[in-house]
Structures are given as C-alpha cells and as structure tokens.
C-alpha cells in the first residue's frame, strides 16, 4: 500500500505513467466511469480549500466512486482534541483512500502511518502539495509535448511559494531544463532549494528582478502572487508590486508557444485581460489537475480501467 506525501514518492517514470493515464482518461472518459465503483474517498480538509477539495471529489465521482469527509477543522473531531493519527485510523475504517489538507507540516505523513489506507497529501502548511505539482507537470507536458529541454521562468514570490519549490524539484529531474528566477531581492529562492537542488544537480539558472528582460527567452512562465505581508516595508511593496503583474503589454515580446501557468487563486498578479490569450493555461491547469488526480487515485487503489 502506497501513499503520496511528497513528489519524491514518485519516480519520473511513475509521473510519466500518471500523465499517460490522465491523457487517456481525457480521451476515453467512459472507459474509466466505473473503475472505482464501491470505493470511497475521504476528503479530510482541516483548512479551507475550494479548488483542491472539489478537484479530488470530482475526480473520485468521475471514477464511479463516492466521497465522504469534512471541509473545515471545526466540523471534525480535531475540534475535540483528537489526534491526526486517531482520526486517520478511524476514517481508514470507513474509506478506501484519504486526501488530507492540514495546516501543520507533516500531518499527512502521520496520517499515512496509521490510516491503513493510502493517504494523499492535499497540502500541509507551507511544506508539500504534490498533486499541485502533478497538475503543473501534466499542463507543461500537454502544452509543450515534453517535460525537458525548456526554459522555465518562475516569477513572483519564490521564497515562500511551496508550489515553486516542488516544481523546481520535479522539473530538475528532467534533462535540458534551465530556470530563470524573476523576483524582488526580498523574495528570492531559499538557500536550501538553491543548494540542495539547483546547485547540487548543476541546473543552469539565471536570477533577475525584471520580467520584461527575460520574457522573450521563456517556454514556460510560472506566475505566483507577491503578497504585501512578505515585505519589510510598505514603500518597497508599492515600488515593486506592479513589476510582477502580467499584462498583455508584457507578453508582446514573449514566444508564441509560451505557456503561462499559475497555481491559483490569483489576486491581481495576472491581469484578467490576459485570460483570453491562447498562452494563458492556468484554467486548463485546474482541469488537468482533476484528471491527474483521477490517475493518482487509480494508481494508489491499484485499480485499472
């Protein structure tokens, strides 16, 4: 029995396999409509989430399974002081698989030790969010037809953005990746990502504060939000905030085949006037996220079409 706690739990071959299954589900949804019949997914969400929870629930329903769970901690026994381990063990008596989001880092790992059924980490604090990374990877794969040999721009808050760190980690396992990191000095990539991944694996990279400077080079642009509370002073925030807002004007110099991704929710870092540009892929990313979660649920439940 396997769980998915970190993207490291999957080899590149397994990720390729999940993408292939997700693509097949998209092409032949009827073939998969009953493959999780009589199976139950429990979504244990200790903090609010719209996209990820509904994505998991839709994924299970489209596989013919059913869904139980809760969407906030106050409606679970944790409000009475129950441990994650006990909740997981209890829910494991009812459900065949668990998707858990929890504000504390490591909670899904703890759940996976005691649940007795596979556990999927649906986000644990600022730590891991492997199914978002899978959604990012399938989007890149479908848009570019490959996961290697490309220049990937990462823009915005690269310091605190867990999705950025996981994506760097996952993509750097493929050949021919170059990262261009675009952020204010206050929000550059953390040392451990730089040391443990980029430098250790000899991945070519370039750091800049200007999106315009590098736009023409990018095959992928991964946008994240620059949050006001990350800055030490208001003046710096006001000076820099618009530098990291994507507009149609900034896209003029971009490649025609660029793919713009964003883990969502967006606040104002991508102008809504970019949404109709064929290079805007962030809503497709949400859709593909559901299909890759379907493939993942099938893999962990060891069911076939």
């Amino acid at each position: 029995m396997r769980s998915l706690i970190s993207i490291h739990d999957l080899s590149p071959d397994e990720i390729d396999g999940l993408i292939a299954t997700a693509n097949d589900i998209m092409a032949n949804p009827d073939d998969y409509a009953d493959c999780c019949r009589r199976k139950k997914l429990a979504t244990l969400f200790y903090e609010p989430s719209t996209r990820t929870r509904l994505s998991f629930e839709s994924a299970m329903l489209e596989l013919g399974g059913s869904v139980i769970g809760f969407s906030e901690a106050t409606s679970s026994s944790s409000a009475k002081g129950e441990s994650v381990s006990d909740t997981a063990r209890t829910v494991g008596c009812f459900a065949d698989i668990i998707a858990m989001r929890h504000p504390k880092e490591g909670a899904p790992l703890v759940a996976s030790i005691s649940a007795g059924v596979p556990v999927i980490n649906a986000g644990d604090g600022g730590h891991n969010h492997p199914t978002q990374t899978l959604a990012d990877l399938i989007t890149i794969s479908r848009e570019k037809g490959r996961l290697g040999n490309m220049t990937v721009g990462l823009c915005g808050d690269l310091k605190f953005g867990r999705t950025v760190h996981s994506l760097i980690d996952a993509l750097s396992r493929y050949a021919g990746i170059k990262f261009i990191m675009i952020s204010p000095d206050e929000l550059t990539i953390p040392d451990y990502v730089m040391q443990d991944i980029i430098l250790k694996r000899n991945i070519p990279y370039y750091e800049t504060g200007s999106l315009e400077e590098v736009m023409h080079e990018l095959d992928i642009l991964y946008m994240t939000r620059v949050q006001r509370e990350r800055f030490f002073n208001e003046a710096d925030y006001i000076r820099l905030k618009d530098s990291y807002v994507l507009t149609p004007e900034k896209l003029i110099s971009a490649k025609k085949e660029l793919a713009v991704l964003h883990p969502l929710p967006r606040v104002n870092e991508i102008s809504t006037s970019v949404d109709d540009d064929p290079r805007a892929c962030y809503f497709k990313q949400v859709l593909y996220g559901k299909f890759i979660r379907m493939a993942l649920i099938m893999m962990l439940l060891e069911v076939n079409k």
Binding site: V84, P103, K104, E105, G106, A107, D124, H127
Partner: peptide, 13 residues
C-alpha cells in the same frame, strides 16, 4: 523546533 511542524502540537509523536 519548527512551530509549524505537526510534532509541535501532537507531542506523543
């Protein structure tokens, strides 16, 4: 020592 770690609140771990 990470206050965000699950082991900081579930001390039997």
């Amino acid at each position: 020592n990470n206050p965000r770690c699950i082991s900081s609140t579930e001390q039997e771990l």
